[in-house]
């Protein structure tokens, strides 16, 4: 219990520090006073630029980081597989495909692109569900079918890049506007709240399937709901920032090592950690070799991987072992 409190306190502090640095650092530097004034509407010169360009990016990083991390945590709970990640089972690529469709064929519907991405994610999920239904969404089958779906969708996206259709993958966090930020925040907040409510359900899903079935728990339905929310969060994020590797996989694991596997405690922590990590990755990517930017995805892979290894060695636990 104490360990959890300490972890949370440290996490909040780290988040605030990263938040501050991400707003302050950049080709245009602001000081704290200017930021505060800017928040309350007094924007001029450099402050205006920062607010126009940097703030949306910061908010996107926070919400996308939280969403992707939650999506990973929920998925891991639902299919009881520590390697689960929306990217692995094809949701992300399907969502990207949905997005590509909108951008290429229905650009006037850009505001609805998260919905199209979600539609893509849902289609992938429906196929997944239909195929694995008779196994009651058992972990192994979900993973196998998901990997196959991922291959297919990724291939379709690549093919459409080879043909005459020009498409823009909206990868990365650069060049994002307030439009993008509002879109993401507006859509993802529902998913985030829904995910947090699902804590107790995720806990139940961690028990033997036979046992929870014996007490009347609707296993299939519960898994279904958890996965849908996971798909929603991953799709909505992907629509705005494209696919960012590792967050869904790493963040829940690191979180578990720090606060344990009780989802009621784990999920809120995952929100904080996911937001912080992506924000940190993005900021570092911006600042490391100016004026060039290294995408957050690359930073995540570079830092996240070794970070996880260090934590494993220190705490020696992987998903309950």
């Amino acid at each position: 219990m104490k360990k959890i409190l300490i972890a949370y306190s440290v996490m909040v502090v780290v988040f605030l520090v990263v938040l501050y640095e991400s707003v302050v650092l950049g080709s245009l530097q602001l000081n704290f006073g200017e930021i505060i004034k800017g928040v309350f509407g007094d924007r001029s010169g450099a402050t205006a630029v920062v607010f126009d360009l940097r703030f949306p990016r910061v908010l996107i990083a926070i919400f996308a980081g939280a969403s992707l991390a939650l999506a990973g945590a929920l998925l891991q709970a639902a299919i009881k597989n520590p390697l689960a990640d929306p990217g692995i089972i094809g949701i992300t690529s399907a969502a990207m495909l949905g997005n590509v469709v909108v951008i290429n064929f229905l650009p006037h519907l850009f505001f609805y692109s998260p919905i199209f991405a979600f539609a893509g994610g849902v289609i992938a999920f429906v196929i997944l569900y239909a195929v694995t239904k008779k196994y009651d969404m058992s972990p192994v089958f979900v993973l196998l079918v998901g990997i196959a779906l991922n291959a297919v969708f990724t291939a379709i996206i690549k093919v459409s890049g080879v043909t005459a259709i020009h498409f823009t993958e909206s990868t990365g966090l650069s060049m994002k506007t307030w439009e993008d930020a509002n879109l993401l925040m507006g859509f993802s907040i529902f998913g985030i709240i829904a995910a947090l409510i699902l804590g107790p359900v995720c806990n139940m899903l961690g028990l033997s399937e036979k046992t929870i079935r014996s007490v009347g728990f609707p296993v299939g339905k519960a898994r279904w709901v958890v996965i849908i929310i996971s798909v929603y969060l991953a799709s909505v994020s992907t629509a705005i920032v494209g696919s960012i590797a590792f967050i869904g996989l790493l963040v829940p694991h690191i979180a578990r090592m720090l606060v344990g596997s009780n989802y009621k405690v784990l999920l809120p922590f995952t929100v904080l950690l996911g937001a912080t990590m992506l924000l940190a990755a993005d900021t570092i990517g911006r600042m490391i070799v100016p004026p060039f930017e290294i995408t957050a995805s690359i930073i995540m892979s570079l830092i996240g991987g070794p970070f996880l290894i260090i934590l494993i060695r220190k705490f020696g636990k992987i998903y309950g072992h």
């Binding site: 961690g206 028990l207 033997s208 046992t211 014996s214 009347g216 344990g260 009780n262 309950g320």
Partner: peptide, 17 residues
């Protein structure tokens, strides 16, 4: 059904918390 029938299985697993 669960109020009428309870089952104990051979092997069971529970999360560590």
């Amino acid at each position: 059904r669960a109020k009428k029938i309870a089952v104990v299985h051979q092997q069971n697993e529970a999360p560590e918390h």
